[in-house]
Design a protein around this nucleic acid. Structure first.
Lengths: 179, 179
DNA sequence: ATTGCTGCAAACGATTTGCATGAGG
DNA sequence: CCTCATGCAAATCGTTTGCAGCAAT
């Protein structure tokens, strides 16, 4: 089983909304690839076929999936890709994800919470009111809790609030910033 | 590191509010012990000194703690208690936890969300508007994400919503129930 | 060419299980 | 007494790391 933290980190890379019922559009996927690739360039890493394949596979399902699932998925397009590479690439995704990359969504935490079917990380940044990012919560976890209590879980939310580096240098506990 | 799911499940056993700054009252602890013990009886398990000790230790901190931390804590009252027992007992806790056990809190999910410093599981039950239960989120997770982005994380929330067995037999997607 | 990437296998940490002994009902 | 609980050590799971060869810049 995959501990949430991996996915939390991973999913923040790009506007993958797990609660969207539809597949990501081609533009979205292209956009995501660009984000990732430019990140690679920025930090002097290489753009390889495997990384492409893994990113694609990752984007092309809106399902919550485990690392193992992703590995299976990836192997459909390239059976030679190993487990290790999937792990390493996922880590890269999470590196590529950064609060700096702020989508248009500037919803307040409160607003974000109201989306259905998925968990959301909301970051409070100095300029960007809220980076609403995207998290494929742990299906396992949800099911596990649900089954134990004979509940059908309908959705869950996960939010982490924090103060960014910039803000930390300023006054502690600013009243304005909605933390 | 402890995967969230363990704690999630575990913490639901009784009204342990991680966001409360104060210790649990003696009555609360007694209440919790009763819940646990009667669960043990119900399923034909035994009430042992170790289980008592672990439950106490578990209740007496409102800190988020790892299994390892709990083990240390437990060993203060009985150094002979082993790691394995802690693990097994935690699992028992989560078995004992059930939506049926509904505390007086009938806050709506929305209300629950506004508490500070902790994550909360909110269950929607047929009669009981919301079983607000209690989750010691993963400190590790929070820090991990925070560090990665040079954020100081201030708090996080985790909520799972679900439909209980009773409700499932009724109309699907009831408008009234605040899911 | 140089540097980083890959896959494999071995290492690792957290959790679980098998088993013989010990304690609770 | 009989059953379950315990502690230990060994097994297992998911993930990470070291390394030799391969691929991208």
């Amino acid at each position: 089983m995959v501990c949430s933290s991996d996915w939390l980190a991973t999913m923040t890379i790009l506007p993958k909304r797990v609660d969207d019922q539809t597949q990501l559009s081609h533009e979205s996927i292209r956009e995501a690839e660009e984000i990732f690739n430019s990140h690679l360039k920025r930090v002097g890493l290489k753009h390889t076929g495997q990384r492409d394949a893994i990113l694609r596979a990752f984007l092309e399902t809106h399902d919550h999936l485990s690392t193992e699932d992703l590995h299976h998925l990836v192997q459909r397009s390239d059976p030679s890709i190993g487990f290790t590479t999937v792990y390493r690439t996922l880590k890269l995704f999470s590196d590529a994800a950064s609060p700096a990359r702020s989508p248009s969504t500037t919803a307040s935490p409160a607003t974000s919470t109201s989306t259905t079917g998925a968990a959301i990380i909301t970051w409070s940044a100095p300029n960007v009111a809220a980076l609403s990012s995207f998290f494929a919560g742990d299906r396992e976890l949800e099911k596990e809790i649900g089954n134990k209590h004979h509940y059908i879980t309908t959705r869950h939310t996960f939010q982490i609030y924090g103060v960014c580096g910039e803000c930390q240098k300023k006054k502690p506990a600013r009243r304005g910033s909605r933390l």
